[in-house]
């Protein structure tokens, strides 16, 4: 009997050990099955198809409430404590105080957030920001298809949001129809930081042009080799990311986290 109890104990211990050593994605994440991303703008002739490994991604964007609890636990990221090198002056400025939301709703996506702050938040959850390739891969899914880029109706629907001015009051996260993977609001709420936002060189390749790094930075240079020239939404995302600096905070830019399997 003792032996059985002991064995049962060992089993429980092993199961617990397994769970602890191999943590599943936290609540609120879904698994995105890997596959091939055909980048809208192939960064080089050898990268017309990019393999993307399976990964976890937050179902929704990080909310005001979630970010508030992060700054309460990590006061160095409060707007009155943050080092100036990590965020510009508008960082979280729409909250009533450094540690209370005021009129900002808890379930609205957090915005006016810098890349450094977004990255620190994800790290604190034992997660990371998604890469640009992961984000684009996840975001090509419509509610019914993993890759809906050829679906003109869906594309028009996405583009429609890009051309609409931002509403005065942002909707709450997770209220739209989820996409094929169960992800909400990849299009239609706010733009999102990616880990490697500062990787779009377009044609300012250091090996081509050492003296004027900004020559042909985007637009015309991109249009020559873009895979689908009428995919305006993809154009805009590239242009937007290329214009960002890690300290920028704007009212239409938030983030969500990802994690390796």
């Amino acid at each position: 009997m003792k032996l059985i109890a002991w064995l049962a104990g060992v089993c429980i211990w092993m199961i617990c050990g397994e769970v602890l050593a191999n943590p599943q994605a936290g609540e609120g994440m879904v698994r995105v099955e890997g596959g091939i991303l055909v980048p809208f703008y192939p960064p080089s002739p050898k990268e017309k198809e990019i393999p993307v490994k399976s990964f976890w991604m937050d179902k929704t964007q990080v909310t005001n409430a979630q970010f508030l609890s992060f700054v309460k636990q990590n006061p160095s990221w409060r707007r009155d404590k943050i080092k100036k090198i990590f965020a510009d002056a508008r960082y979280l400025s729409y909250w009533q105080t450094p540690s209370s939301l005021g009129n900002a709703k808890p379930d609205q996506p957090v915005t006016q957030i810098s890349w450094f702050a977004a990255k620190a938040y994800c790290q604190a959850q034992d997660k990371r920001l998604p890469t640009e390739n992961e984000w684009e891969y996840a975001a090509q899914a419509s509610p019914r298809q993993a890759n809906a880029r050829k679906d003109m109706e869906w594309r028009t629907h996405v583009l429609d949001w890009y051309t609409r001015p931002a509403p005065k009051e942002l909707p709450e996260v997770g209220k739209s129809e989820p996409n094929y993977w169960g992800l909400y609001d990849l299009h239609g709420l706010v733009w999102e930081w990616v880990l490697d936002f500062n990787s779009s060189l377009i044609s300012s390749d250091n090996r081509e042009n050492a003296t004027s790094p900004d020559k042909n930075r985007f637009c015309g240079a991109g249009a020559l080799v873009a895979t689908e020239k009428d995919d305006y939404a993809s154009f805009m995302r590239i242009a937007f990311r290329t214009s960002l600096k890690a300290t920028y905070t704007t009212s239409n830019l938030g983030f969500r986290c990802a994690k390796d399997l």
């Binding site: 080089s44 050898k46 990255k119 500062n198 990787s199 060189l201 390749d205 250091n206 050492a210 890690a246």
Partner: peptide, 25 residues
């Protein structure tokens, strides 16, 4: 690497044949 690159305003990406494309400054 990405933190220091972001701080100094560098854009870079690794390339499949090895190495990196990057701005300079």
């Amino acid at each position: 690497v990405r933190d220091i690159a972001a701080l100094l305003g560098f854009t870079y990406r690794s390339i499949p044949e090895g190495g990196f494309n990057h701005t300079s400054g």
